[in-house]
Design a protein around this nucleic acid. Structure first.
Lengths: 334, 334
DNA sequence: TTGTACGCGTTATCAC
DNA sequence: GTGATAACGCGTACAA
């Protein structure tokens, strides 16, 4: 590998001049030409490690997601990538494996790699490590979920109104017993979507039956299990709202197995619009999160912070709107 | 940030001694104790950038996948991560965006980051950049697909026999007109699975009707489109074999829309066992690839190479077996 | 066993 | 505009 010294020697100038040419500073035209010539001849490219050691900038942003095999998360990561690329920044995607410990480990790893910023979809409601990093001046942007004990910029989804819209749609269609397959209450979005559910009930002056609210862990299996529990109730719901994508899948699977006809016998609203919701028969009515936009917004925000732009409020918390896409899984009842 | 000098000063020894302690070499017990004490007091950790600059080892492996929002790929990436972690290696996951150009860019990026090895699911059938890296001594492991003009270790799936098993199963169940929703022929697995299809037909002395072989681009939409084309044929197939996961989804979606009953009116075998195949009614018979094992095998192989172990043949090409999981989407016909 | 001094490749700071 | 050189933080001959 040729170094800047080799280039300097070949071009007959000092390394400083080469560095200046490389960084687009003012250099005599003649020297610039010779340096560029030498760079080409030697096929030289700057050693990013050495540069980073000196400048404390790696031009890299760390992205931590809870699960790399979850499309929702990776789609967001992809959105971040796409938005950061034009700025010359690259990302390192890590998997926290849905655990605080894994998260801690990945944060340490990214810190080790001297990333210039971290975008994270956190798994718990606290993370001391993050706070420490933040105090050291590394910009942090939270996505999808908030952490209680930390003041950080965040890109969120308006979960409350997202869930509200779904439940309201069911109520307007005559449903009074709406089963909720909820996320866990220690996770931010789980809490919020439950609030949306409750608020819709309250606004329509209906009373809530806690027995038809069930808490899962966001995975297929728990959607499957909770759907079965709800359908086994002496007086089962006439409609179900599943509060995330994978639990929606599990729930549908359970309904299928029991040969329950949607929407004839049971109305259903799911969450997120990915492969499944397009292939299911009937097409599912769903609450859709703008995953691309989430990634993009996170990227823009962290870029701004990395540039040292601290204008605007701190923390800046963006709430992106969801969309209720009405298809054929909801039936109007008396 | 404390440096090794700070530690040396506090411990009253030289930086060399500190370095030795850090790297577990022989040091007088007393000094070791004092150094460890100082490390703890200062909360020191070695600067990986500086170390990498000196040693030319970053303890990082680059992983390039064609699409970060494709579960098949990210599941493999996750498997790699899990297997490499115990060795102290971390991974950088990149998205080549299904393009040669994107791939080239990511390879350059990883080279810039001085990764110690690259595991890649390639998108085309050539890649000069890779060859160059390999010539520079960076271990490369191909996953899922081979590249024609390169000699490299690879972890593949026995696509030929995987497809063969599926088609054979349909033939044994009386089907003679088996529609194939194939991948593109410029992609390795597309070619191989077609061969498996053809071989099964040949072995059973049946003649192939090229009209019921259709070529898609591996995405949902093309599965959907090709399924419709096949069903619109004057004499449509009695069974369909879709040669990847997303095209399977699209195909099923098309069948659903046309209210075609599987397996009563049409038998179906899909590829890979992920969310969809578990939720579809009826449960789908599928050819399953061992994604976890693929990731793990790739990790083990590249680790071996990074350790300088060149035993075994070069290139080492592993063929992992697929499994035909028989469920309820195939009907025996006369 | 330990310490010194230098190298890694780049950038920043100064004189010129 | 340019060149020499210190500095970044670590690893490692080499001498002690």
């Amino acid at each position: 590998m040729p170094t800047i010294k080799d280039v300097a020697k070949l071009a007959g100038v000092s390394t400083a001049t080469v560095s200046r040419v490389l960084n687009g500073e003012n250099v005599k035209e003649e020297n610039r030409r010779r340096v560029e010539e030498a760079v080409k001849r030697l096929n030289y490219s700057t050693n990013t490690l050495a540069r980073a050691l000196k400048t404390n900038k790696t031009m890299t942003v760390g992205v931590i997601v809870p699960d790399l095999s979850n499309v929702f998360f990776t789609t967001i990561a992809k959105g971040i990538e796409k938005a950061l690329h034009p700025y010359g920044y690259s990302i390192m995607v890590c998997d926290s494996d849905e655990s605080i410990e894994g998260e801690r480990e990945k944060i340490a790893f990214l810190k080790d790699k001297f990333v210039d910023g971290i975008i994270i979809i956190p798994v718990g409601d606290q993370q001391l490590y993050l706070k420490r990093l933040q105090d050291d001046g590394t910009p942090i942007v939270l996505v999808d979920r908030l952490i209680e004990d930390i003041q950080a910029d965040a890109i969120l989804v308006d979960n409350i109104n997202g869930a509200y819209d779904a439940v309201e749609h069911l109520i307007v269609n005559g449903h009074r017993r709406i089963g909720l397959i909820s996320g866990p209450q220690h996770i931010f979005v789980g809490k919020e979507r439950l609030i949306g559910y409750e608020r819709a009930y309250t606004d329509y002056q209906l009373s809530i039956d806690p027995k038809i609210i069930r808490y899962g862990d966001l995975h297929i299996e728990s959607g499957y299990k909770l759907m079965n529990e709800l359908l086994d109730l002496p007086s089962p719901p006439t409609a179900i709202f599943a509060a995330n994508y994978y639990m929606s899948i599990g729930a549908i699977m359970a309904a299928n197995e029991r040969h329950i006809n949607i929407p004839e016998e049971l109305s259903f609203i799911g969450f997120d619009d990915m492969e499944l919701t397009r292939v299911i028969k009937p097409p599912l009515t769903v609450v859709v999160q703008p995953m691309d936009k989430m990634g993009q917004a996170a990227a823009e925000l962290i870029y701004k912070r990395m540039m040292g732009d601290n204008s605007g409020p701190f923390p800046t918390i963006l709430r992106l709107k969801t969309q209720l896409i009405k298809r054929e899984s909801v039936k109007k009842i008396n």
